[in-house]
């Protein structure tokens, strides 16, 4: 059991001293977690241009669709 994370001490007692992570398995888990996050960040970064283009495209598409819908209603009511 790692004493660092044991919060079972009572109020008023001194907190157990912080110790460095001395367990190889713990370190491996942490490294795996961090590298997984880095890989995910790199993957997203690779698609940045396309993502931004899709966002801008969507905005323009929404405005065009609103315009088309409005124009269609306008013509229909006019007739």
């Amino acid at each position: 059991m790692n004493k660092n994370n044991d919060t079972s001490f009572q109020a008023g007692e001194p907190m157990p001293a912080q110790e460095p992570i001395a367990n190889a398995e713990t370190l491996e888990l942490e490294i795996a977690r961090v590298s997984q996050l880095d890989r995910a960040a790199a993957a997203i970064k690779g698609y940045e241009w396309w993502g931004l283009a899709a966002g801008v495209g969507l905005q323009l598409l929404v405005l065009l669709a609103m315009t088309m819908m409005g124009a269609f209603n306008f013509v229909r009511e006019g007739m």
């Binding site: 905005q59 405005l63 609103m66 315009t67 819908m69 409005g70 209603n73 306008f74």
Partner: peptide, 22 residues
Amino acid sequence: AFFFGCLLYGGAIALIANIFDM
């Protein structure tokens, strides 16, 4: 610039809705 564009996008939605009474 993107933030500014997004503010304009919201304004455009409101104004287009206003133009066509939506």
